[in-house]
């Protein structure tokens, strides 16, 4: 991570270590999401909770688009386009917040069941809750890189933090690509 390693070779070597660490973390975290996915299929089988389809489609699109901007932000950073990087990061953050509002603010209210109402409720709130927690922490990371980006801490050669936050964002996005169909599409109401 960001220690004051002097030479660029040392920084690169460090980068390899950090990348491996980050990917191992994703691997580990994937098991949590996997466990909930398994729970969903074990308990609900061919049923799915009754949810607001259009809202689901909207939040999913929002999250996918945010990943596009995340990717752009990182690419702009490596090219040294600091302005572009800042703009894209802000957009990503806003889209992330929009996703949270959509899921936690609306879907949780619209759902015809609460967390205590049978396995549907349990599975739905657990899966979306855990995922929303990850999106939220992703927004926090984005905020951190945004602040440091404004201060000009990153250079095209040295921006591991940006890369890490971006990869985390994509990871959480990929999780949703599995969760969305599991909750909204597969099975009958």
């Amino acid at each position: 991570m960001s220690t004051s390693s002097s030479s660029l070779t040392a920084y690169r070597q460090r980068l390899g270590i950090n990348r491996l660490g980050l990917w191992l973390f994703f691997l580990s975290d994937a098991f949590v999401f996997g466990a909930f996915l398994f729970t969903r299929f074990y308990l609900l089988d061919g049923k799915r909770p009754h949810l607001e389809q259009s809202l689901g489609l909207v939040v999913t699109s929002v999250l996918l688009i945010s990943s596009f901007f995340m990717n752009r932000a990182e690419a702009q950073m490596s090219k040294g386009d600091r302005k572009g990087f800042l703009t894209s990061t802000v957009i990503t953050m806003l889209l992330g917040i929009a996703f949270l509002v959509g899921v936690v603010g609306f879907e949780w209210r619209l759902a015809p069941f609460g967390p205590a109402d049978g396995p549907e409720g349990a599975v739905f709130y657990m899966m979306t809750g855990m995922h929303a927690f990850h999106v939220f922490s992703g927004v926090v990371f984005l905020f951190i890189i945004l602040r440091n980006g404004i201060k000009g801490r990153y250079t095209p050669e040295r921006h591991w933090a940006v890369e890490a936050a971006a990869n985390y964002w994509h990871f959480v996005d990929v999780v949703w690509i599995f969760y969305y169909p599991a909750l909204y599409l597969i099975g009958v109401v």
């Binding site: 729970t39 308990l43 967390p115 205590a116 109402d117 049978g118 396995p119 409720g121 349990a122 599975v123 709130y125 657990m126």
Partner: peptide, 9 residues
Amino acid sequence: FERLFGMGF
């Protein structure tokens, strides 16, 4: 969570 919120797992 099942204890706290009554989630039916």
